[in-house]
């Protein structure tokens, strides 16, 4: 990699940009610890006049936080299982089995990625409602068991890199196609499967549109949607709102920091080869 030695000016530009990018998050965390009065009377002071840690328990108790959290976890875990299962099986069909129709169908997989959600939203909503899934978390989980074009693409690219000889050896040992898939390919694909699991977990954690469309009963709201209810009803308690937002963001940030490599490689690969 060609790297120019940074001049002091360049260094300053980088540090300044980093500060601009970091300020919103730092400001959010610091303000979530301020007393409510400080936000209105002295909105531009950086540090809290008093570190009010009680904002966090207050934010949690001012909404059914634990129930929202439970719903979110059900949603995330269900969706991760669904995506990993359905997408790995489908990706195997598109990467490792030679059948007619494979290329055409894989072209369709790619095409569905480019189809705006607007086109399918209404009939899909009515169909899932017809199936009795309206106002259940299942409306958000069941579709993940039916594959996702982006993840199928990602896994297919990974499966293609596994040497064909390994499958061949499995075949000679009498393994069925399913056996080759589950005993050879899957154990070798942990990095790619982790990427899918991670992306799906975050997508489900963050998902707002799904609950907006399919859920009406507050008992079933996940955090992302529950938090939105909180915006309108506690508009004058910005410190609590920011505490709730910080708490909601924290797991994602931790997950990202723990799995940074997986993350960045996943994005770079799919972006360049896409």
């Amino acid at each position: 990699m060609k790297r120019d030695r940074a001049t002091p000016l360049a260094h300053t530009v980088v540090v300044a940009s980093a500060i601009i990018f970091a300020v919103p998050i730092i400001w959010m965390v610091l303000s979530s610890l301020k007393p409510g009065t400080q936000l209105t009377e002295d909105p531009y002071s950086l540090l809290p006049v008093r570190w009010q840690w009680s904002n966090y328990p207050d934010a949690i108790s001012s909404m059914p936080y634990l129930r929202y959290l439970r719903n979110t976890l059900v949603l995330c875990i269900g969706s991760v299982i669904g995506s990993v299962l359905s997408c790995s099986v489908a990706a195997y069909a598109f990467a490792r089995i030679r059948w007619r129709g494979r290329n055409i169908l894989f072209g369709i997989v790619i095409a569905t990625m480019l189809l705006p959600w607007h086109v399918t939203m209404i009939p899909r909503f009515l169909l899932l409602r017809e199936l009795g899934l309206y106002n259940t978390l299942a409306a958000l989980i069941v579709p993940t068991f039916l594959g996702d074009a982006f993840f199928i693409f990602l896994l297919r690219q990974f499966f293609l890199t596994i040497p064909e000889e390994l499958s061949e050896a499995g075949r000679l040992d009498g393994l069925s196609e399913w056996g080759i898939f589950s005993r050879i390919i899957i154990p070798l694909s942990k990095p790619a499967l982790t990427t899918v699991a991670l992306f799906q977990f975050i997508a489900s954690w963050n998902d707002f549109n799904g609950p907006l469309l399919y859920l009406s009963d507050p008992q079933k709201f996940p955090l992302a949607y529950g938090l939105e209810q909180f915006i309108s009803s506690y508009a004058d308690q910005t410190n609590l709102l920011l505490a709730a937002a910080t708490l909601f963001t924290l797991p994602i940030v931790l997950l990202f920091l723990l799995a940074q490599r997986t993350f960045l490689e996943g994005i770079a690969t799919t972006g360049l080869k896409g």
Partner: peptide, 12 residues
């Protein structure tokens, strides 16, 4: 092939 692709195919 169809068997392995079936979850996606049904979804599609």
């Amino acid at each position: 092939g169809l068997f392995f692709a079936s979850p996606w195919l049904i979804g599609f």
